[in-house]
Simulated assay, not measured.
Amino acid sequence: MYLYTVIYITRKIFNRRKYTLMKKLRYSLVLCLALISMTACKKEVKKETTTPTEEVKKQAPFSLQNAKNEIKWVAYKTTDKVPVKGQFKKVNITAGGEGNTAKEAINNAAFAIPVSSIFTADSGRDFKIKKFFFGVMDNTNLLSGKLVIETDSTGYSDITMNGVTKKLPFTYTLNDKNFQLKGTMKLAAWKAESALDSLNKVCHDLHKGADGVSKTWDEVAIEINTQF
């Protein structure tokens, strides 16, 4: 009887421990599954946040904005027509200017040139041109225009200066990725006589030639070089 009681009590203790152990194992298994599920969700959310939502705009093969652009000009002084060379160091492409070919990128490209970017390698001359030439014009902080290709060697640009928009005819060459344009501005077409007189007055002695006559010409040669 005593032995039976001991065996009975031992079995009950064993079954209770077994039940407790199984319960703990089930709890641990549920906890592990929950942690695995949370980790997987976090990784999935992180992956979604790093996925690009916008397509990158495809860049055209030829772009004026990304090309190397040189805008040079030559003005003239004295009766002997001594050249005064300069350039504009900055040009902004405001519309168009891209294409599958160089000609396509150039044709109908609109631009704006800040007159403040003028450069002649003489700071005193630069100041006078800005203040006493462009500075007396009407609304001429920028020289704006559009390039139009007409034939394989000619075209024109609608230039706005001094509140006037006029066509500037030009010739050009296009060799592979190199574009060169040449034209001549007659300043009277843009009603710039007063600006020219203003500049000649402040540069009177500097624009005198051997004959003692001070002269600033109404003619400015333009050259644009673009390398794509």
Rank of each mutant, 00 (worst) to 15 (best):
A112V: 00
G97T: 10
G97W: 08
E98P: 09
A95N: 15
A109D: 05
E98R: 11
T94M: 06
N107F: 10
A102V: 15
I113F: 06
A121S: 07
D122H: 01
R125I: 07
T120N: 04
R125T: 06
A112W: 02
I106Q: 05
F119L: 00
A110Y: 08
F119E: 08
A110W: 03
A121C: 02
K103G: 12
T120G: 03
A121L: 10
G99L: 13
E98I: 15
G96N: 11
G124K: 08
G99H: 12
I113H: 02
T101I: 13
P114Y: 01
I106A: 09
S123C: 01
I106M: 14
S116P: 04
K89D: 14
A95D: 15
T101P: 12
A110M: 09
F111G: 01
I113E: 03
N92A: 14
A121V: 02
K90I: 08
E98F: 11
I113N: 02
T94Y: 05
P114D: 02
A102T: 11
R125F: 13
I93H: 06
G97R: 08
N100T: 14
I113A: 00
A109E: 06
T101K: 10
A102R: 05
N92F: 14
I113R: 01
N108C: 09
A110P: 06
N92W: 08
A95Q: 15
G99A: 13
T101Y: 12
A110H: 10
A112P: 00
N92V: 13
A95S: 15
G97F: 08
S117C: 03
A109N: 04
N100H: 14
I106F: 11
G124C: 00
N108S: 14
I106H: 06
N108I: 07
N108F: 14
V115C: 00
A112Q: 00
R125P: 04
E98H: 13
A110G: 03
F119Y: 09
A105H: 04
I118E: 03
G97Q: 08
T120S: 11
A110L: 07
E98N: 15
I106N: 07
S123M: 08
N100A: 15
S116D: 11
T94K: 05
V91K: 02
A112I: 00
N108M: 14
G97S: 09
S116N: 09
F119Q: 00
A95Y: 10
I106Y: 07
A95W: 07
A109M: 07
K89A: 10
A112F: 05
R125Y: 11
I113W: 02
N107T: 09
G99P: 12
E98A: 14
N100P: 09
F119I: 00
A105F: 07
G97I: 10
